[in-house]
Design a protein around this nucleic acid. Sequence first.
DNA 1: CGTTTCGTAGAAAACGTTTCCTAGAAATCG
DNA 2: CGATTTCTAGGAAACGTTTTCTACGAAACG
Lengths: 340, 340
Amino acid sequence: MKRKNIRDVAREANVSISTVSHALNETRYVKEETKQKIKKIAKKLNYRPSAIAKGLRKKSINTVAIFVANIESQFFSKVTMGINKIANANNYHTIMVNTFYDEDEEEKIIESLRNQFIDGAIFVSGLNNVDCIKKLDEEKFPFVLVTRKINDRYPSILIDNMKAMEETIDYLANFGHRKIGYLTMDYQNRQTVTERFLGYKKGLKKNKLGYDSSIVLIGENKMIDEMKKGYILVRETFRNKEAPTAMIAATDNLAAGAYTAFKELDLKIPQDISIVGFDNLPMSRFLDPPLTTIKQPKEKLGSCAMEMLIKLIRSEEIRQNIQILDTAITERGSVTYPSK
Amino acid sequence: MKRKNIRDVAREANVSISTVSHALNETRYVKEETKQKIKKIAKKLNYRPSAIAKGLRKKSINTVAIFVANIESQFFSKVTMGINKIANANNYHTIMVNTFYDEDEEEKIIESLRNQFIDGAIFVSGLNNVDCIKKLDEEKFPFVLVTRKINDRYPSILIDNMKAMEETIDYLANFGHRKIGYLTMDYQNRQTVTERFLGYKKGLKKNKLGYDSSIVLIGENKMIDEMKKGYILVRETFRNKEAPTAMIAATDNLAAGAYTAFKELDLKIPQDISIVGFDNLPMSRFLDPPLTTIKQPKEKLGSCAMEMLIKLIRSEEIRQNIQILDTAITERGSVTYPSK
DNA sequence: CGTTTCGTAGAAAACGTTTCCTAGAAATCG
DNA sequence: CGATTTCTAGGAAACGTTTTCTACGAAACG
């Protein structure tokens, strides 16, 4: 049983193709009687207009791509949810591309998607693959960056990582902490992580605290499992060395790993060591003790991005290219006054 | 600057459209010299063949849909990763549909995607929306179910939830536990959860342990946050009632919530209460103590599904419609002998 | 030297829509 | 009653490919 097309409907209804199209899409007046007849027949034949043919004519199949580095991270999945909600509401489909932090892969896929197939793209965090983005811009291909800024012109939805980190140092300093360690990864190609690190340094300076490289733990890029990385780094580093009184982790996942390590080292959280995370992942509330962490509006990041992208696609004016959403420290149980 | 099409290339190269097509796709012999010239010109003009036009002609744009209930869950995201890997390797794009466990929504989207736009679909877990799937089958639309079985004929990639649960009871019984509680949710429309519950009951019977409804905690469907649900259920139930010596949670997320509650109730894990989870989510290893849990091959579920789907799309023969992958108990620190 | 094969490539159909252009019949107007 | 407007709707172009059909000149063959 072959798939029916618009011609089949037209024939069966004894009208022209254009009438069928207009009747079904309500794009011009068709006599009520005829319209009903056409609709009935379309239903009877189980007619489904070909989105591809329509796309060819309309030069769009209402689809955008989402580039995420690693969908497994709950940060990315939350952002994706925000994107999808707005997309659905506006009849856009989303194609998910998981780059696994691989630049070549990313570039290859961008290339392949640019075959006039996709109306726009959202890059969530991800890499510093600037060239690729530049090319897109030159071709006036609509895109939005999330949590990633290249210049003041490219549309971006951001949070202020530096400021958030600075405030975290303020926060810890207010508790009386003077030795504040840092736990991060060496993703040279990931902006957020870099910015947070800069914020840490700036915060130290602002609070007149010296930078002490011996309590700054940086994991190499190889290992993808952040929790494990945090665990190993902390365990190895503070096995024979005194730990600071507070530790900031660049992500909640790193913090979770650190929790396990500190417990193994018989350091009580928060009595012996205060910990602050970043991201406010769902599990952070259920760590023991609940993790104090920096909350960012993950879903909002996604929805704002998609809203902006739609405007770009429709060539509507956008008020501001760069939108910065608020972060906030979520106080839970992993921070207290230093014991000494 | 208008987008170039194949005609532009042909004109510039002084050859016919078909020659350009053949040269670029290597679909028939074209004189080497001509071919190089065409390729050079195509590059110069920044020509990108329209995937949509190609799709119209070829009746496919190499795209499949993934239906997941909630991408935020790391189970789903892992499965998605498995799917994407195989998809990428085979030049398929994937469209992500997040149903948020909403049947109507799901159905609506399936409808809209069936516009000859999509070559097939993978349904990951999700709902018991049988009608919809049946319709797809009747229309010979290729699909694969993951972690969800409707009948012996529909292609499915499964794990044996019942068996896994039974084995878990065996495992706990071997430790000497006689009072084994259960923590689950009342998702009537979600198969996995139902099957696990059945497995629990069957395991009890097999080990000659009575079913005691007072230690079976069932959360209502409303609250989506499983961790929170686990937390509240355990806390409320065992506030004034004696807890069992062991507790099985239908998911790691529920277990994580239970951890917090038991700690609040001053029950030590595993000394006072042994806990077993299900899913082996990344965080389970970093709970305190590390959670003993049932591992399922999440990525493998996805990759097997996509491999099967590709075969279905290509109308290749598939050896078995139903594939059952192995689960295994991952022993960590949350189970020990009962203290009394 | 006529016929077949080979190397090369163009013309046009087809994919299934949307939409522009055109137009007849009926109704309204002056 | 002729001119204009209003309903109603058909024909065909266009979207950008792939692919089938066709063909021409040159080389090989007998």
